[in-house]
Simulated scan of single mutants.
Amino acid sequence: MQLFARQRFYWMNLGIPLLCAALVFLLFDMTQVDIAFSNLLFDPISQAFPLDHVRLFEQITHKWARIVPNWTAEIALIGGLLSLLWPRINSQKYPGLGGFLERTKVAPVLRFTTEHRRDFWFVVFAFAICTGVIHFLKAHTSVYCPIETTLYGGKLAHIEWYSNFQLFKEAGDGRCWPGGHASGGFTMLALYFVARRHQWRFAKAILWGSLWLGFIYGTTRVLQGWHYMSHTFWAGIFVWLACLLTALAFYGRARLDVPVLQKVNALGSTTPIQAAG
């Protein structure tokens, strides 16, 4: 039963994303679908993507949209740092300080951060690792954005990421693949793994909300000519894999798979299954 749960977990969380990666590669990278879609958004008369020149659209979808992942990362970092304080506050040795913290409602906040220390630091590390992965791929593929290429009035050649990939050195100055703005929305997937660990009832809502947020972030940049649609899908795939591996390192598979283990236990076992890790 535990073997079945393990296989199911890795199929759902690792196998499906890898399958999606293969489909995106075949349907987008090996065809002209990306270019055909961007052609619909490009005005050949003005030689521009009209939405790229709408300042309000840029402000809302590119500038303000960063607030959500940025604030999430900052709150997680603050929570992680605060979680280190409470164990070091000796209420018996400093009763005055302890009483002050209780009266000002600071003590419950510090206790909460201490209880969820691993969660706060997981979010911090997941965001950092996701950002690092995306930046690595950008630098080592050197893909230029559509608006920068000769296809849409630019001066640089259009190339596919796989034809210019360099593992051990930067491939050039291009920084368009995968979608960085989309990845900012997708990093909110880290909260899904926290919710899954604690079996929160809104875990699936967080999952779908994070996926939609990343998709919306990426699509707005596609409309402006700064990305192809496949760049958004690739960003989601890499961010998911980065969050998954980070969550496995922080929590272990069993803690993330508790609901599945309980279901398997209910179907065919009378011995409680303990989630280790």
Rank of each mutant, 00 (worst) to 15 (best):
T220R: 13
H135Q: 13
I237T: 05
D34T: 08
W64E: 05
P108C: 00
C20L: 15
P87L: 10
W212P: 00
R118V: 09
L207Y: 15
F120A: 15
A48R: 11
L97S: 08
H231K: 01
H198M: 13
A247F: 00
V239R: 01
A182Q: 03
I45S: 04
A73G: 14
L51F: 10
A107D: 11
Y10R: 04
Q32E: 14
I159L: 10
R6Y: 03
M30F: 09
D43Y: 06
L245V: 02
F233S: 04
L191K: 10
T113C: 15
G218P: 09
A242H: 05
V133S: 01
N90Y: 05
G185S: 08
L211A: 03
D257N: 15
L56W: 06
F49H: 12
P44C: 03
M188Y: 00
F37V: 15
F9P: 03
G218V: 10
A76Q: 09
L23E: 13
Y251S: 07
G268Q: 08
L14R: 02
Y94A: 14
R117S: 12
I237M: 06
F186M: 01
R88W: 13
F125C: 06
Q2C: 07
L156V: 12
S91R: 14
Q274S: 04
P108W: 00
A5I: 01
F165D: 01
W121H: 06
L151V: 03
V260W: 13
R8G: 07
K204R: 15
S230R: 11
D43V: 06
L41Y: 05
G15R: 07
G268I: 02
L56G: 02
C176D: 09
A247D: 00
A21C: 12
K263M: 07
Y152R: 13
H231E: 03
I89V: 13
H53P: 04
F4W: 06
T113E: 06
G154H: 07
K63G: 02
M1H: 02
R197F: 09
K105Q: 10
W208T: 08
G236K: 04
L213I: 04
N90M: 08
I75K: 03
T232K: 01
F122N: 01
M188V: 03
L23C: 14
E160A: 09
R66K: 12
T131W: 12
H62A: 05
S269D: 13
A276D: 06
L241W: 10
G268R: 07
A73V: 05
F193P: 02
R6D: 12
L26M: 15
F193M: 10
S269Q: 12
A247I: 00
I216D: 02
W86Q: 15
V143H: 14
L40Q: 13
M12T: 12
Y192F: 15
L26I: 15
K138I: 13
V143N: 14
K155R: 09
N39T: 02
G184N: 10
Q59M: 04
Y228L: 02
K138Y: 14
W71G: 00
N39D: 14
K105W: 09
R196H: 11
A275N: 07
I45Y: 02
L110C: 11
F215W: 04
H62I: 02
I129G: 01
P178G: 04
L241E: 04
V260F: 10
G174H: 03
V194K: 06
C243Y: 03
A266M: 09
Y217I: 08
V33Y: 15
A36R: 15
L41G: 06
G214N: 06
T150R: 11
R117Q: 14
C20R: 03
